[in-house]
Amino acid sequence: MDPDNLRRETIRDSGSGPMHLEPVQKWVLSVLAAVTIAHLAVGLVIAALYVDQSRTDAVVGLNIISAAFGLIAVAVFRAIHQKPILTPWLALGLVPGIVGLWLCLG
């Protein structure tokens, strides 16, 4: 750096398209949030697998809570992308609870 000739460096567009950071931030945030909440849902299913099988109420309850967190994960993903939350994609959130019930009671 030359103190007598102060210049600010600029990043020139390479012609490969505009550099937008906001869509990338949305995708990173939405995937991070959805995966984190989905891990919680799967953890509840795993907890239900270790509950005493005579406690059917606890097993079913943990799987219902797991399905609720699955729904929340999908809703958060769609909300971050500013899409309508009530869509058929919301049914994807029920998968952890349904699979958990099948594993625990089947």
Rank of each mutant, 00 (worst) to 15 (best):
M1S: 12
G43N: 14
I98A: 12
D4W: 01
L32H: 05
N5E: 08
L32W: 10
D13H: 14
L32Y: 07
V28T: 14
A33R: 06
V60Y: 09
N63C: 15
A73S: 15
L94S: 07
D52N: 14
K83T: 05
M19K: 14
L6I: 05
A33F: 15
Q82P: 03
G43A: 14
L101M: 13
R55Y: 10
I72C: 06
L6V: 00
G17E: 07
P96C: 09
T36M: 15
L105Y: 04
P88Q: 00
G17P: 10
V35L: 15
E9S: 12
L105C: 05
T56G: 10
V51A: 15
N5R: 06
L101W: 12
A79K: 08
A67D: 09
A47F: 05
L62E: 00
A38G: 14
R12F: 11
G43C: 10
A67Q: 09
S14I: 10
P84V: 02
Q82T: 09
V28G: 10
V60F: 11
P23W: 06
A91W: 08
H39N: 14
S54Y: 09
H81N: 09
P88F: 05
V74Y: 10
L103T: 01
A68F: 14
G43D: 13
L40K: 11
S54D: 10
P18N: 12
P88V: 08
S66P: 08
L101F: 12
L29R: 12
G43I: 02
L105T: 01
L94A: 13
A67C: 08
D2W: 01
A34Q: 11
L29F: 09
V51Q: 08
T10W: 01
G43F: 04
I72V: 14
E22V: 12
L103V: 08
A58C: 02
L44Q: 03
W27H: 14
A75V: 04
F69I: 05
L49I: 01
N63Y: 06
F77S: 07
G100W: 01
P84H: 05
M19C: 11
Q82R: 13
A68G: 11
L29M: 14
V76Y: 03
G97N: 08
V74E: 06
D2A: 04
A91P: 02
P96T: 07
V51G: 02
A73V: 06
R8Q: 12
